[in-house]
Nucleic acid binder design. Structure first.
Lengths: 148, 148
DNA sequence: TATTGTTATACTCTATAACTATA
DNA sequence: TATAGTTATAGAGTATAACAATA
């Protein structure tokens, strides 16, 4: 667990604790969703956000996910090529484009979502409901520190 | 904060909460330490771990940080070129090499560590001591899920 | 002028296979 | 044969500047 190393100095820092917790979370995602479905975390997030939110724009996705606009373009290009999402220009403001799931995208998302539930159980199997709620609340409080 | 998007579906997942919390933590690190001192997170972690731990090996660093060995080689090359660390072969087992800070590395680490304290206060200014302790404990419990 | 989104580019990160050298 | 570390490489992530189209 400590890998024979004294990590006490680093474990005083929030960023390091986040990075360490991200390791098993990321690996489990890769094993259960990433490799089987060919989805990266950002892609999974996009499918989910677009599923819930009607008429999401590039900009809002970019902001929410913390992915710079030019990079998001590449990701969306890939998702569109795979026919998982489609982009349509807004009739009101032709600069904007709405991103929506295709039927194929909806199907893949449904599958991924189901696996994600299993993933959560795996990751948090040793947590009580209270601990889980507390952890999520505190992480969201950190996230709320974000300025723009 | 929610950026006008309904993120409820994603916020049910630990990985997303971690990723969202990582955004301000990462940005603050970049602003306060990364840009001013020319240090990336991994490099800062290495300086800190090597400072505390005498005779750390490449392998143990690789495991602790979750960085694959070949990639760590590159990072250590860079740190060595900047004369922040030095690598010395073990006399007992010539395959292993111990990584140590140079005086220059120690000086830079001291500076970084001082800034890191400020960074923590900034990030966690709205947290009580109890909340902070709880958050760290829960994150470490997640990290402990790691297998190898 | 300001905003949305794209193109181009450069740099970094991550993962894997193949290698050297020691044991 | 197994382990520590390196080289090489391909793919993915990240950041920035410059641009086109629209408002």
């Amino acid at each position: 667990m400590s890998h024979g190393l004294d990590q006490s100095e680093m474990l005083r820092l929030l960023g390091y604790n986040i990075a360490q917790a991200a390791i098993p979370a990321y690996r489990l995602f890769e094993t259960l969703i990433g490799l089987p479905l060919g989805l990266r975390q950002v892609e999974f997030s996009i499918l989910t956000l677009v599923d819930t939110n009607d008429k999401v724009t590039h900009k809002r996705l970019s902001t929410a996910l913390g992915v710079a606009a030019p990079n998001l373009t590449i990701v969306l290009d890939r998702l569109e090529q795979r026919q998982l999402v489609k982009r349509t220009r807004s009739p009101h403001d032709a600069r904007m484009q709405y991103i929506q799931l295709t039927p194929k995208g909806r199907a893949l998302h449904a599958k991924a979502k189901q696996i994600a539930d299993t993933m959560e159980s795996d990751l948090l199997s040793h947590f009580s409901a209270g601990e889980r709620a507390m952890l999520f609340e505190l992480l969201q409080k950190v996230a709320a520190q974000r300025r723009p």
